[in-house]
Design a binder for these strands. Sequence first.
DNA 1: GGGCCTAGCTTGTTCAGACAAGTTCGCTTA
DNA 2: TAAGCGAACTTGTCTGAACAAGCTAGGCCC
Lengths: 251, 251
Amino acid sequence: MVARYAQIAGELRDAITRGEYAVGAQLPSEAELAVRFAVSRGTIRQAVAVLGAEGLVGSRQGARRIVLGRERSQSFAELHSFAQWAWSMGYEVGGRVLRQRRRAASAAEAARLALRPGEPVLAVLRLRSLEGEPVMLERTVYAGWIAPAVERLDADCASVTQALHESVGLVFAYGEHLLDAVAAGSEDSRLLAVRRGGPLLRQRRVTTTPEGRPVEWSDDRYRAGSVAFGIRNSVDVNPLVRQVGELRPSP
Amino acid sequence: MVARYAQIAGELRDAITRGEYAVGAQLPSEAELAVRFAVSRGTIRQAVAVLGAEGLVGSRQGARRIVLGRERSQSFAELHSFAQWAWSMGYEVGGRVLRQRRRAASAAEAARLALRPGEPVLAVLRLRSLEGEPVMLERTVYAGWIAPAVERLDADCASVTQALHESVGLVFAYGEHLLDAVAAGSEDSRLLAVRRGGPLLRQRRVTTTPEGRPVEWSDDRYRAGSVAFGIRNSVDVNPLVRQVGELRPSP
DNA sequence: GGGCCTAGCTTGTTCAGACAAGTTCGCTTA
DNA sequence: TAAGCGAACTTGTCTGAACAAGCTAGGCCC
């Protein structure tokens, strides 16, 4: 059972993607759409709000909505799961666990995962590849309560997200991401086959269940040029934030 | 005149920031808030929707909303304008134009700026510093129609955004960003005082007016460690997208 | 022709009510 | 004790209405 406003949002999104409404063109008025879809104006507003949040259309009071772009934005699952993302694009994806061990959470890890320092966590090092080439190195710390389920997985399990969903019904719902660039360390350079000190795109992230319980804290490093992250924002909705790193890198 | 729902969103956001509602705690129910603020439930829903879009609270049907984080997210202006961001954090900021010239738009630039190839654009190279240290190199291409206003600015104008707003009333409303890591080129390394081939965080972006007219296309490169970009997302609202770069870097 | 002004259109805000769907928790039952 | 059930609560969806505020285009006047 999909909500009516979501169906309408889908139809409008498809129309935009098909080019029926060109970039820069105007969308029909809310009243017009309400008649066309035989719903109230409130439902139409919910539908176009979805498109607004996706950055596909913009709006100004008094003027008709305009189309800003036509690319479909990814689902949360596609962003969270490297494998699901690669599959959706038709790429061949690989993954291999290189190291896995239990240990006590550091202070920083405990804070990220809402644990007490010293509580057990599971640290995993995974190498991800795309079309056979190593592309990303994933250093993940799982909260102790999910560790047994992770340990039961195959070492070359492609989609951990999907496997955990199927085995224990775990669902990820919220994420917090920090993107920056770092120099490849010796382990990074060896495993990703890049020059030591060369550029890597780093994505640090915490992922949380629908109940707000943090599950994992990860440091993912992508080979430069292999992937980029995209974001659309506006005056009304700006999820992107710039933060200072360390101004003076410690020697 | 600020909308009532925005006021309520502000009060709730402040309460969360103050720690009145701890991370992981529940928010009062919509009905309760409606009584407390003496508005209808619809208005309360708009208010909490704002907090949801900011990633501060999460919600599931049937259960009370929970607090996910407490940091205030930045305004569009703070993200867009390097200077306004630095000022808001109390840092000293500097900017200097190193090169500026008019030329014809390349095919790629024309596509980004919704121009025809060959139409005139203004290319500017700016060095940005924080606390006296060079931190970011900004290569911006302005659409021809705004070029005269940009050329009238001082070479060491700190906030171009603010200056253009004051001089010609230009307002930025939408942005599209692409984040990745690149190796420092020779010009990059000289101006940012980093090793050639070392890591830089690259932010490529297009900014657009409220009418949907693209104004500038920029390639900003940050010294590694100086800044990071943060994003919160969820199953319901996911503005972040992962994209492939070039899988095989051209030799 | 050019500028001003207004009428009509369009989006933004708010309300009140109704029902659907999911969660929580205490009570009952095996 | 443990599982199952259901009532009360809470968020999600949708309607219809009204007014506010901003934009646009066409007509009018100079």
